[in-house]
Structures are given as structure tokens and as C-alpha cells.
């Protein structure tokens, strides 16, 4: 178990390092010296002294590899650099916007899982084949509808036409609900598909047949055999779904005009504020890696075969 954990932790660190290097390489590939260009540009809105702070901070006179090493050392300490737009520390900007995004993604995750579970169970256990077919079509429908279309239409009909929900973020739960459902649909599709398929596969396994032969009913079989066996692929997918959530929150926040990390990054791209973009990428990669690490740690408790590497 300990060796397994250490290996997973090592892999996680490797991914983080690689993600940092990749974004550093991408951003330093920009033509010219992005930071001086930025400060010199008339519409940057920076004061002279902020510009000086920035120049000192980024040490542009240093060779590239030294900038890279310094950047890594700072990032390891949680210092993600300064915004080229406001000269504020990026981590402060993130800290301001994160709570709103966390509330959104958290609720969306719950909505998504709930929806996925309902669909997966309905597809497998509903008595009528017609109804099962109806639910089976739901995931591919969800996957085909872009988030911005769902969001806009929800806003249009629920907020302006029906007046059910506020059209701007007033901090209330009802204002959070529409964006959370919009975002939840995005992850409900793959989760429902995988959960449904893995329930189906598990139910056709010989060991489930054996449990039938012991005289067990469907409820008993679901509790004892099916749920645990079919939740493993879902758990692995949950890590991926988290990435989708982060990406989806960019669009959702833009549609519903919420001040979150997603809107921060869109603004930063529009103003070419590279450190902020890099900060958001690093933050979301870290979240993603941590979630996956948690999933990896949880897996052996569900399936002991993971540790000996015999899972098929």
C-alpha cells in the first residue's frame, strides 16, 4: 500500500511539474517580450510604478532558465506572480474569485452525480423497455448541447420569460441553481453513460448469476455485488469529470455573469494577462491532480486487486 501511494504521489508531482513547464514554454514562446510590450502599451492601464514593480518581479534581464527556475520555486511556495493588468498578486485574484466558483462547481457536481445515478438506474432497472430506451438517449442528448446554449436558453425562459430565477448573481441559492444545473448536465452525460454501462456489465457477470442462484433478489444483489463493482469505473471518471467542470465553469460563469475563476481567465485572455492565465491553468491542474490522487487512494479500498495489479 505504501509503495503504491508513493508511486502515485510521485506521478502527481511529475504531472504538476510538467504542466508548469508546458505553460511556461507556451507563454515564453510568445513573440517579443510579452511583459515589456504589455507595460509599454498605452491601454494597459498600468501606472509607472506598477510597471517598475512588474519588471523587478519578473527579472526580465535574467536568462530564460533562471526565470524558469525562479518561477518554479515561487509557484511551489504558492506565489503565482503578478497580474500584468493590475500588478496584483495572481494568488490574491484567485482567492477572491475561487469561493464563487467552488460553490458553483460543488453544486454542479452534486447535480451531475444525482442525475447520472438516476439515469443509470433507470436505464438498467425500469420494467418497460420503452422507458429504458427513453432514458438511454438522455446522455447523448446532454453531450450534444453546448453549455452556452443551455445557459442562454435557461436565462431566457426561466429568468426573463417566467421570472423564476434572478438574472444576475445576487448570492442567493436560487441564483446559483440555474448555472449549477447547466454545468451539471455537462458531467452528467459521461457519468451516466459509464455508470449505466458498468452496471449492465456487472449484472451479466457469472458471479452475479451465482448470487441469483443463492436465492438473492435484485435489491440484495445491487447492494452486495453490483454497486461496488460498477462504481470503480465511475470513480476513475470522476477525476476527469472534475476537469470538465472547471472548463465548463468558464462558459457558465460568462453566461450567467458570475464573478468566478472562469470569468477571470476570460478577462485575462482578452487583455493578454499571461500570469493570470497561467495561474488559473496551474490551479485547475492542481485540483484535477489532487482529485485523481484521492481517487487513486480510494480505489484499493473498493477493489483490492488494484494493489497487486491484476485488474482486468
Amino acid at each position: 500500500m505504501r509503495r503504491y501511494l508513493i508511486r502515485r504521489l510521485g506521478q502527481a508531482l511529475l504531472v504538476l511539474w510538467a504542466a508548469y513547464s508546458l505553460s511556461f514554454a507556451l507563454l515564453s514562446a510568445l513573440p517579443g517580450d510579452a511583459i515589456s510590450n504589455r507595460i509599454a502599451s498605452p491601454d494597459s492601464g498600468l501606472t509607472a510604478e506598477s510597471g517598475a514593480v512588474l519588471l523587478r518581479y519578473y527579472g526580465l534581464d535574467q536568462p530564460l532558465w533562471e526565470q524558469y527556475l525562479r518561477g518554479i520555486a515561487r509557484a511551489a511556495r504558492g506565489d503565482l506572480g503578478l497580474s500584468l493588468h493590475t500588478a496584483q498578486p495572481v494568488q490574491d485574484l484567485l482567492a477572491d474569485t475561487l469561493p464563487s466558483t467552488l460553490a458553483l462547481t460543488g453544486l454542479a457536481l452534486m447535480v451531475g452525480i444525482l442525475l447520472a445515478a438516476v439515469i443509470a438506474l433507470a436505464v438498467n432497472y425500469l420494467p418497460s423497455a420503452r422507458l429504458r430506451g427513453l432514458f438511454a438517449g438522455a446522455p447523448s442528448l446532454f453531450a450534444s448541447v453546448p453549455t452556452f446554449v443551455v445557459g442562454i436558453l435557461a436565462l431566457q425562459y426561466l429568468s426573463f420569460t417566467a421570472g423564476l430565477i434572478p438574472s444576475v448573481d445576487d448570492g442567493s441559492l436560487t441564483a446559483l441553481l440555474a448555472p449549477a444545473v447547466t454545468l451539471g448536465l455537462v458531467i452528467a452525460a459521461p457519468l451516466a453513460q459509464v455508470f449505466g454501462a458498468s452496471i449492465r456489465t456487472t449484472r451479466s457477470q457469472p458471479f452475479v448469476h451465482v448470487l441469483h442462484a443463492k436465492g438473492a433478489g435484485e435489491g440484495y444483489i445491487f447492494r452486495k455485488d453490483v454497486f461496488r463493482n460498477s462504481s470503480l469505473p465511475v470513480l476513475t471518471l470522476l477525476g476527469l469529470a472534475f476537469g470538465e467542470l472547471i472548463a465548463g465553469s468558464v462558459v457558465t460563469e460568462s453566461v450567467f455573469a458570475r464573478d468566478g475563476v472562469g470569468n477571470l481567465v476570460v478577462g485575462a485572455v482578452n487583455t493578454q494577462d499571461l500570469p493570470v492565465v497561467q495561474g488559473v491553468v496551474l490551479l485547475s491542474t492542481t485540483t484535477y491532480v489532487l482529485v485523481n490522487l484521492a481517487v487513486d487512494v480510494a480505489c484499493p479500498f473498493i477493489d483490492p486487486r488494484v494493489l497487486v495489479g491484476v485488474t482486468s
Binding site: 457469472p206 448469476h209 448470487l211 441469483h212 443463492k214 436465492g215 463493482n229 470503480l232
Partner: peptide
């Protein structure tokens, strides 16, 4: 009746036991 009066010894023991539950619990099911 199943499991109590009429029971099954399945073929292919490799796939006839739930891989994620201890074997004792699977006998205990009955």
C-alpha cells in the same frame, strides 16, 4: 427455494466469485 433447497456449483470458478468481496462473506450470503 434457490440456495436453500436447490443450489448451484457454477463452472469457471475464476469468474464466479465477486472480486471485490472477501470469500467468507460470499458464503455467508446464503
Amino acid at each position: 427455494l434457490r440456495g436453500r433447497a436447490v443450489s448451484l456449483i457454477p463452472q469457471d470458478p475464476g469468474v464466479s466469485l465477486d472480486p471485490v468481496r472477501p470469500v467468507g462473506a460470499q458464503v455467508e450470503d446464503v
